[in-house]
Design a protein around this nucleic acid. Structure first.
Lengths: 347, 347
DNA sequence: CTGTTAGCGCATTCAA
DNA sequence: TTGAATGCGCTAACAG
């Protein structure tokens, strides 16, 4: 029983031996090469199936040949925001449909200088890298951009013009949300925003400022809280604003997760929403629409964003020498639900 | 300028040329081989850095050599349940710490016969595969088990004894939850469970039956709803049960997502929780603890589950010839919050 | 129609 | 301490 090889992997040579042909013949038959007799082809396929030989998808050696792995790295800050999990879900769907696998890389960049995790990607075993949560000063993005590797940013952008980016119209979305609050009669509007080194936060705040300016107003810096995009941030933020001497009548949140924290804190502390306090979120994640919440928010077409980001990535991979720097901006829409109302009358 | 190679990738040979040594010398120097002069080593490192040569992590050729890629496939049904996103987050953390990347595979197995997505994994370019949402009849698990590839099941198990599995004590957890309801005085308990081809659903129902039996009771089949683990399922399920002639006073849900759907529907339709209806979930996902929800539920140590699953996987990879079939069952604990109370008095 | 040869980038012999 | 040669599994170029 000497031939009981310890090799786990079934190779094309094994199939060749089984059929009694050369290894390249197996390769050709399985690849659908027309210059192979009907009979040989059938015998090869039969043997391949019998031996459980992996066809169809590229493996290491094929990758070595073509310098292609059909794997795309997707970088995300965390999986705790359902906006991103939804985005990942759709991205995976699109990439898988095109025959690409997705390598997940969760990296919060707590230390932006630490690129150790990124080393795995820098290795360039991947066909491309898609960032979904880049900070504006991301060293990782800069380093990857310097390499000749297909790179696409989704959701958040950075101030490098030569990088493809797919984002939503945060400025317009925020503007519309603030105009909605102003129309309802609110004048003292609080802001609980995301990190001030993310394009989403900055753009949304910019839109808010524009809306206020159109009405001869400007944001009260005492009513502006910058922090992480987290439930906790909204929870503590609203309590801080509520207990300040400039108690707001409405709060514009950097995203839905923050808004849910705000609503949660409000319920806990007897602040009636929307009677005493109006709340607006951003993203329109699924929970926002639940009956128990009914959050007024700005909808961002997550599915379409993922679709376009995936498409850009595939384009980059197929024509790596095309000039990059394309920017897609997707429209948003205000979803009016139950967390906004006119401010309480002073009396 | 003939030497302007079109090759994108920087190879060890490029570094060798730069330094003026042979390719194997570069390989050795970077691998930390002691039989390399201090000076050569330094020059190699310098050149590698200068040329942006990828060290440290294995790439295609290294994988080809060792038949190892340091990549682990993780299969999950969907990213819409935050229990799984949390699990993925922790799994990623553990695997990354050990130097492994995570390839995500989202597959709902709408058609269990369709293994096309799995082909990518069957390719065996991966060092191991970790299932988090296997159904009991999963063809994918059976096929992979037949291959000699490290395989670990987390959360859900299948009836194949030879496969490593890490799961929580669903039977005890459910039992405790039902006993809690019985102690409160409930007698007509409704069940909105997950799919009846998942071990989690079956085990949780089994525990519920056991608790009822200890009190001389048994579940009313008219009050048992089996369906997907979704918000929608809980939402529609509770309305069905509430409008039946056997209206329950409490509902045990297959997981928290279902329970949130139940609570949501109850709020929407004026069914006061817990005054008119008690609700118990399972998993203790973060939302369950939010002030606005305060769901009574069964806590499953997600972090620990992920940790152990990752550890098992690494063990399997390191000693592939050890007999498999280890089963870890993690303890659960009942978290009493605000959605359970004694049933309304008949009067 | 099919076999032979070579090479993708690396690590690992064996020689020197 | 280093270099030359070899092979991982596959596809592509070249023969036949």
């Amino acid at each position: 029983m000497k031939q009981t090889a310890r090799r786990l992997r079934v190779t094309s040579r094994d199939v060749a031996r089984e059929v009694g042909v050369s290894q390249p013949t197996v390769s050709r038959a399985l690849a659908g090469d027309q210059a192979i007799s009907q009979e040989t082809r059938q015998r090869v396929f039969a043997a391949a199936e019998r031996l459980n030989y992996a066809t169809k998808y590229p493996n290491l050696s094929k990758g070595l040949m073509h310098q292609k792995t059909r794997m795309i790295g997707v970088v995300v800050a965390a999986l705790t925001n359902s906006y991103y999990t939804l985005l990942l879900d759709r991205l995976h769907h699109e990439l898988a449909a095109a025959g690409y696998s997705m390598i997940l890389m969760i990296d919060e960049y707590e230390n932006p200088k630490d690129l150790s995790k990124l080393q795995m990607l820098l290795d360039k075993t991947l066909d491309g890298i898609l960032f979904t949560t880049a900070t504006e000063d991301s060293a990782a993005v800069r380093v990857l951009h310097a390499q000749a590797i297909p790179l696409v940013l989704a959701v958040r952008s950075v101030p490098i013009k030569e990088i493809d980016v797919v984002e939503s119209d945060n400025v317009m979305g925020a503007k519309e949300a603030i105009l909605h609050l102003l129309e309802l009669g609110h004048r003292r509007i609080g802001f609980i925003l995301g990190p001030n080194n993310t394009s989403t936060s900055l753009q949304r705040f910019e839109g808010a400022i524009a809306a206020l300016a159109e009405n001869g107003l400007e944001p009260d810096s005492k009513l502006c809280v910058w922090g992480p995009y987290s439930h906790e941030s909204g929870y503590s933020g609203v309590l801080r604003l509520w207990n300040s001497d400039q108690r707001p009548t409405a709060i514009f949140c950097g995203n839905d997760v923050i808004a849910l924290g705000v609503v949660d804190a409000a319920r806990k502390h007897g602040i009636e929403v929307p009677q005493k306090l109006s709340v607006v979120g951003f993203d329109d994640i699924p929970i926002a629409g639940w009956s128990a919440i009914q959050l007024t928010t700005v909808r961002v077409g997550i599915g379409e964003l993922a679709l376009i980001a995936a498409r850009r990535m595939l384009e980059r991979i197929q024509s790596p020498h095309e000039p990059s720097g394309r920017r897609d901006v997707l429209p948003t829409s205000l979803i009016r639900r139950a967390t906004t109302a006119p401010p309480p009358s002073p009396g």
